[in-house]
Design a protein around this nucleic acid. Sequence first.
DNA 1: ACTAAGTAGCTTAGTGCTAAGTTATCGCCA
DNA 2: TGGCGATAACTTAGCACTAAGCTACTTAGT
Lengths: 166, 166
Amino acid sequence: MRVMHKDRVDAIGDQWRRERPDLGDLLAMEVFGRIYRIADAVGNRMEEAYGCFGIGRGEFDVLATLRRSGEPYRLTPKQLAGTLMLTTGGMTGRLDKLEKSGLIAREPDPDDRRSVRARLTPEGRELVDNAVAAGLEVQRAVLGRLSPDDAKLLGNLLRELLDAAR
Amino acid sequence: MRVMHKDRVDAIGDQWRRERPDLGDLLAMEVFGRIYRIADAVGNRMEEAYGCFGIGRGEFDVLATLRRSGEPYRLTPKQLAGTLMLTTGGMTGRLDKLEKSGLIAREPDPDDRRSVRARLTPEGRELVDNAVAAGLEVQRAVLGRLSPDDAKLLGNLLRELLDAAR
DNA sequence: ACTAAGTAGCTTAGTGCTAAGTTATCGCCA
DNA sequence: TGGCGATAACTTAGCACTAAGCTACTTAGT
């Protein structure tokens, strides 16, 4: 591992060590501090990439969930809200906007009159098919800084950490 | 590395591989997907930990920035907003709330009448000194799932990745 | 000294979310 | 068959943020 210059997260750790030496080792703080910052920085880049297609990240997530569910690209707001860790109220708003843009259509569920199905329109499918490739390119560009072996190793460590965080 | 069961992020990758085999390797998508989810899950846990002290994460961040800046625990809203990646408008709101709770005080800057200084009150300092320890405990509990060597390795990989993401 | 540009904090309008509550519908069980 | 709890989508109120713009003040240029 190449030696790197101190970053902003290191500087925060240094401040705490000076002010509160009793806290002990701060590796945990530094790990999660970097995770927050990476999520934020890459999130902004993704937002930018999706912006080229006229949608935001929230809307992309809805379209992507429908797309990867396979034909006929149809899910209920309830299913979408569960997958995307959102309330149904929040999903109503996202679907409203996507419907207005013509990227999804709402259709009644023939078996349950309480329920609705959100379906990807052909325009929505084409847009999400392009956007997912653009987003992946951004992610690959960032991860590409690591060697293939390091990237794979990182993936495994993160899988274990996510399991612990749940 | 112990073999682990498939998680939700793996399931998403599997769906994309079925629907869009042309996308190729999805390691990058899975890495950042896990980073988002870890940030979210650990963020919720931290929120809970700080909630015991009657503050949220945003307020904690302000108090912590003042605390680790050292005596006399005094910074301008502008400095705080820069450190916390917030607009000055957002900072006004956080300081309003903290001032109302008696955890910080606003005082005029004697050298620049445009400027204000936010200072930690004794109550604010005591609260943040306890809260930072509680938060660190949460972070250590999650990171503790990894071996000390793996944790250190993860820290180094994330440092490099954050540098790439900037 | 006077003016123009820049800066600090705050205010306002708009966004996107949650939590709680509403309405319509479903499905179970006496 | 009738009634009751559960459920789906939506609505509303409130929250925390951003972007843009305001006011008061400072600083640099002449």
